[in-house]
Design a protein around this nucleic acid. Structure first.
Length: 292
DNA sequence: CATACGTGGCC
DNA sequence: TGGCCAAGTAT
């Protein structure tokens, strides 16, 4: 991939980029941050309606900060990984209190906020503030593995190495670099996908090292597959779903209905309490936090 | 560095 | 059906 390939890539992005809600002109840093947190491990189609609700309801960090944790968890709905919602609420509180209600533009400052890691900090810096910084998510890692390294897929992640790989690709001009970052992600999301890549539609087909190598299969270590059925994650999800769906606190007996294994059930309820996703009321019932 | 952490769609 | 995958982070 050379400079000409990247020019083809950004031309393609200008022509075909999906019309996602958070890409509309005028989206604030707050809007970008909320979208990035919601998109962590979560498909675009599920995020878009929730993001629109949140922007209408909480257009500023201070507005979200003023809501209770329970309200926020209810509005998060079934996006998954609800600790993200709690961390976003905490981040909003810090932004409102310490940063004048404006999402910081500095990567290191962003990294200090809860729920914001190596990917999200740079995504906000690039997409909200037009900075030149490498944005590395699973899509970009796959695109680089193929187009640059000629492999079938990315190996195990290494933040340092992955950031350096992408930094080498970015042009000097910040606005152009930010567009390249967005285009690399878009390419991985819609063309250079994990299964069944649509190489015939690829704007960097000619410069792709994977093509030049004869499209070898991925030969790295097997990726760890996250099991779900029967895990604590499933049980925690079932418990939380009861509380999200109830305006009133739920009794222990009510929660006991969601899972037959009492040991696992109690362990999960306890872990939810520890995580601050559930609170116990004065009379021993259970509820979302901050509502009773 | 490996693992826990939700949820749902697709083949 | 069940594995695989989806804009990761914290520990």
């Amino acid at each position: 991939m050379d400079a000409a390939d990247l020019a083809d890539l950004t031309d393609w992005f200008d022509r075909t980029a999906r019309d996602l809600a958070w890409r509309k002109p005028g989206t604030t840093g707050w809007g970008v941050l909320v979208s990035e947190i919601m998109l962590q491990q979560t498909p675009v189609a599920r995020v878009e309606p929730i993001w629109l609700e949140w922007m209408a309801r909480w257009p500023l960090p201070s507005a979200l900060a003023a809501a209770s944790q329970g309200e926020v968890l209810r509005a998060w709905g079934k996006l998954g990984y609800p600790r993200r919602a709690l961390r976003l609420h905490a981040a909003a509180t810090a932004i409102a209190t310490d940063h004048g209600d404006v999402v910081p533009a500095d990567v290191d400052t962003l990294l200090g906020l809860p729920g914001i890691g190596a990917y999200t900090a740079r995504a906000v810096a690039a997409f909200a503030y037009g900075q030149r910084c490498p944005v590395v998510d699973t899509n970009v890692r796959r695109v680089v593995a193929r187009a640059v390294h000629g492999a079938g897929d990315a190996g195990p992640p290494s933040t340092t190495r992955d950031l350096a790989d992408v930094a080498k690709l970015l042009p000097q001009d910040p606005a152009t670099a930010a567009k390249v970052s967005a285009a690399l992600m878009e390419l991985g999301a819609v063309v250079c996908v994990a299964r069944g890549p649509r190489c015939a539609d690829c704007p960097v087909f000619d410069g792709c090292a994977w093509q030049h190598n004869g499209r070898p299969a991925y030969d790295g270590p097997a990726k760890a597959v996250q099991r779900f059925a029967g895990t604590d994650r499933q049980v925690r999800g079932l418990l939380l779903d009861v509380l999200r769906g109830s305006a009133e606190p739920a009794s222990k007996a009510r929660l006991d209905l969601v899972w037959s294994d009492a040991g696992q059930r109690d362990r999960c309820l306890d872990s939810l309490l520890v995580d601050g996703l559930v609170e116990q009321t004065a009379n021993g019932e259970f509820a979302l936090p901050g509502e009773h």
